[in-house]
């Protein structure tokens, strides 16, 4: 929901591709609202004890969305040169890979 609104908002913002490509303050504000809502959702989910391990995918998705919102809008990766995304995402994906590899090697994903 929030994502869609933001997409609409940024679509409606006049994006000048030639010079200043950055979104308006309104967009920034909407992103902030979305971030707060998502954080709120995370905390609410946290108190749903019946979710048990189901909380992990939910939290993972919610924080990935938050992460993406900040780097795309606040850090302008959505509007900037692709090189910046490439440089950052190289480190990011490798980092995620190393975390998962170490978790696997220390038995996180063993049967059970």
């Amino acid at each position: 929901m929030a994502m869609q609104n933001i997409n609409k908002a940024s679509d409606s913002t006049k994006v000048d591709t030639s010079h200043s490509e950055h979104p308006s303050a309104v967009t920034y504000f909407k992103v902030a609202v979305a971030l707060c809502l998502l954080t709120g959702l995370e905390v609410v989910v946290f108190f749903f004890e019946w979710l048990s391990y189901g909380i992990i995918p939910v939290l993972a998705v919610l924080s990935v969305v938050k992460f993406a919102l900040v780097i795309m809008f606040y850090m302008h990766l959505k509007y900037d040169h692709r090189l910046f995304s490439t440089l950052f995402l190289t480190g990011l994906f490798l980092a995620i890979g190393v975390i998962f590899a170490l978790m696997a090697l220390f038995g996180w994903f063993n049967a059970g």
Partner: peptide
């Protein structure tokens, strides 16, 4: 460019710490 390379590198810094925490 330098800043973005630095941030990519810093991802690995925090990844190591987070991996230690999770392990």
């Amino acid at each position: 460019i330098l800043m973005w390379v630095f941030l990519g590198s810093d991802c690995m810094f925090f990844a190591t710490l987070i991996a230690t925490y999770l392990v």
